[in-house]
């Protein structure tokens, strides 16, 4: 699967995969299914996946995007791995708080903090 088509970019940091969204409004209804497939593809390719999803470029997200993140988190968990989120702007963080998903996900201010927390 071509991850760029799904709007995702991955970089490997000593076995920890950082995932970035290529476009700002990528988490909208038009793209969400492809993104979900892209995330599943990354998770399925790893044993005990260690993932950091970086929201640095993201200015908007919907409940469909939250659903995709929850599915990815459940999938990572079932493989004994860990998923962390980082660089979420205040408006989007509020969406996580309203839905109480800030308690379910491990959220860090920066991707560097999220990655160092794995060691």
């Amino acid at each position: 699967m071509d991850l760029a088509t799904a709007g995702l970019k991955t970089t490997d940091h000593d076995g920890i995969i950082r995932i970035d969204f290529i476009e700002r409004n990528i988490l909208d209804e038009a793209n969400i299914q492809l993104i979900g497939e892209g995330l599943n593809h990354v998770v399925d390719a790893m044993d005990e996946p260690k993932l950091v999803i970086c929201f640095e470029n993201v200015e908007h997200l919907s409940s469909a995007a939250l659903g995709v993140l929850i599915t990815a988190s459940n999938r990572v968990g079932s493989k004994g791995g860990q998923l962390r989120l980082s660089d979420i702007n205040e408006q989007i963080l509020e969406v996580f708080r309203i839905t109480r998903l800030d308690q379910m996900f491990q959220i860090y201010d920066t991707s560097a903090e999220a990655m160092s927390a794995f060691s």
Partner: peptide, 14 residues
Amino acid sequence: LEIPSGRGIMLMRA
């Protein structure tokens, strides 16, 4: 919390 759907109405109301 771990169910991936059902948050739309809640967000509208929020």
